[in-house]
Design a protein around this nucleic acid. Sequence first.
DNA 1: CGGCGCCTTGACTGGCTTCAAAATGCGTGG
DNA 2: CCACGCATTTTGAAGCCAGTCAAGGCGCCG
Lengths: 234, 234
Amino acid sequence: MSDVIAVRATSDGFPRDAGGGFARRSRILAKGEFLYRPGDALRAIYLVLDGAFKTASTGFDGVERIVGFHLPGEIIGLDGWSELRQRCMAIALADACVCQLSIDQFMWTVLGQKGMREWTRRIIGNCTRNEIEHLEMLGRRQPAARIALFLHELMLRSQHRVEAGACITLPMTREDIACFLSLAPETVSRGFKRLQTMGVISVDHRRIEIRDATKLQSFARSWHQPSMRRRRVA
Amino acid sequence: MSDVIAVRATSDGFPRDAGGGFARRSRILAKGEFLYRPGDALRAIYLVLDGAFKTASTGFDGVERIVGFHLPGEIIGLDGWSELRQRCMAIALADACVCQLSIDQFMWTVLGQKGMREWTRRIIGNCTRNEIEHLEMLGRRQPAARIALFLHELMLRSQHRVEAGACITLPMTREDIACFLSLAPETVSRGFKRLQTMGVISVDHRRIEIRDATKLQSFARSWHQPSMRRRRVA
DNA sequence: CGGCGCCTTGACTGGCTTCAAAATGCGTGG
DNA sequence: CCACGCATTTTGAAGCCAGTCAAGGCGCCG
């Protein structure tokens, strides 16, 4: 686990010293292992320390819909807050490590501490933010735009900087990306290729290099608006 | 404002008697009025008492993307929790009334009261839940399935019962629905018609009557899965 | 070395988007 | 009360593009 991750875990995650302090248990997961499954009782919230996760909700027919990806420094577990049981499943995309905080402690101890409220607001806000980002992606009509937005967002979250030369290794398969963006895997593949052909990125299996951050942004923002003429700007 | 709404506002919304009590201001909005705009400082969270709202995030080009619809008993305002400024705009779809609770009070008073934490958990959970539902809709490939799921969800939220004979008046335009579902308005229109032709619903402008709740569900659940053969059931 | 996933590539089809125009409803003002 | 204009909704026809099916390449791990 790199220093960078340790630092981020502190700045974005659980405060290092939170007043009375509370039990923190860390847990190691192998690639493919479940952190929790749909229907599990709501037990804890989890801070990703290392590795990566996906959360997916099983549809009625057992088909999985990917709700989100979670990188080091991010929180997993809010999907259970409504029903007191987990609605989604959380799966490690690679060997991973999480820090878990019991939900009881969170509700009865943490929320009662003034210093924790700011932290609470932020993690909740970030969860909402990520979901809005997801909706933003799915709203884009053209696959290339969805993919560009996906990459841009992933870069932002993984290293807080989007610039030419930046490089990222995707922790998820093309199929997962496709599911997340509601596209066919083949379309994702073709989308990557198209972006590569246009000199925006460089693709080598799961390694993606940004070659032109400006173009990436403009692709992410471009959007054949559905009936642009009619839409009021408000 | 009907009794039903008053009851729901109490059961789903602010507790009637929350210990020390806190300032509640209600606000009346005319149809089309903004509750807040993108960039506004985070001031409060809002409980919808009557009417309906839409929250939309303006894309980079000023095109609006609809993030969600909000019915009586539901909460608006979490989109500002990440950045301390509202990310979305909230607009009244009809003459409406909200109860607002200052964010400072919420953070410093409400979270400190044991009795409020359960409520807090639930509203946050419901917000997450609604967003997952939205993702679920956008994941459906066929427009008819998205529309069916949309109607089904709206029925659930507006009267907690989905059965034949149930009737609902949509507060939003076809264009809003189209934007929410990421479809063309024409496609929404044709989708409604198709569901009507098949005897699932009966459409009279914005009045929708459920004629066959079972069929509606099966439509909402049906899904030409993207590459069904490959997708693992986990 | 061989099996197995994962990823890529190609051709075809279907359905949604788009463009265009008519119909309907609603609010406004005479 | 009616006439008008605007917004919304519906309907029709045509083109495009993502999904699907199928096959081939590549890396990974046993």
